[in-house]
Write a protein that binds this DNA or RNA. Structure first.
Lengths: 161, 161
DNA sequence: TATCTGACTTTGCTAAACCTAAGCCAGCCT
DNA sequence: AGGCTGGCTTAGGTTTAGCAAAGTCAGATA
């Protein structure tokens, strides 16, 4: 194995999972809509007002999120009201929650106002505060400076061709 | 305490740590530049080519990242070469690594190509794969659907005024 | 002294993201 | 039947992000 990681210029940008993830959720309003969905918001107008975006943008982003499979749109009826559609997180969407928690945590630390954050996220079972942490398959807690970058299967395969 | 969380429309968007974090890192190229910095890239041209952005954009984003305190710009000299500047992650920037790991992990699962991801992230000490996980202060592993949203100090304070 | 290279900056343009304001439609309520 | 409400869509305009191509500048290297 030659120094694969040294000439990553060629491939990093074409087959990077971070870039791919950002193709789906790489803009502000999309992530904020997912924040709302994860907090339990379901109705169109609530999404728009709580995220602070206009209706046309909300409509476009929600449509895209449904197309990408992060939200599911389904009819429901409140008693005495007409049928309408609600948007709920799919499994694919719910798996972005760690990203949201990690972002919130960074914002709490580096960008909250003097009064502190407006929301705490707690474990439903025990009430204790929840954090995103790095952990290795060996069970160790990992700090950001303890990471190694290794070639993955996609890289090795591409190299063989 | 009345149902504070029901009328979150008013405050969520003005004092939300996720929104604040996204004010700093809420666009694609910024996050990709941080990816590169976390992988060890330091030189201007390498940032631009590896992220796949033009030089003017790289210059603008790097400048902003330095202004925001996520990167530090400092002179260095390779032996036999002239002095130049390199960009390195500050502590504030390094604390975004869990966000990047969580994004990568989501991309690996939902958006990688058939060959698999091109990079693996391993724990330097033991070589095992690293993941972003949710954990509560009580030490439990937490799933995305086991979260409760509670009012935080910023919300309570604002409410009291 | 002249050239080369890395690290930008400047110029001029396109495209994406977002806004406000207004319009539309379905179905429940009176 | 007529109006109200939720959930959008349409129209028109601004702001931000991005590109390509060319220019600048400082300090090695020849």
């Amino acid at each position: 194995m030659t120094d694969l990681l040294a000439n990553r210029d060629a491939w990093l940008m074409t087959n990077c999972s971070i870039a791919r993830a950002l193709d789906v959720v790489g803009n502000r309003s999309t992530l904020l809509l997912l924040r709302e969905a994860s907090l339990g918001t379901r109705r169109f107008d609530d999404f728009a007002t709580r995220v602070g975006i206009s209706e046309p943008v909300a409509a476009a982003r929600l449509k895209q999120l449904v197309a990408d499979g992060l939200l599911e749109r389904r009819p429901y009826r409140e008693p005495g009201k007409r049928t309408r559609d609600e948007y709920v997180l799919t499994d694919k969407g719910a798996q972005l929650v760690p990203v949201l928690v990690a972002l919130r945590q960074w914002g709490d630390t580096w960008a909250a106002d003097a009064a502190g954050p407006s929301v705490r996220i707690a474990h439903h079972d025990c009430g204790a505060e929840v954090h995103a942490v790095l952990r290795c398959a060996g069970g160790h807690d990992v700090e950001p400076d303890e990471l190694d970058v290794l070639p993955g299967p996609g890289l090795l395969r591409a190299d063989a061709e």
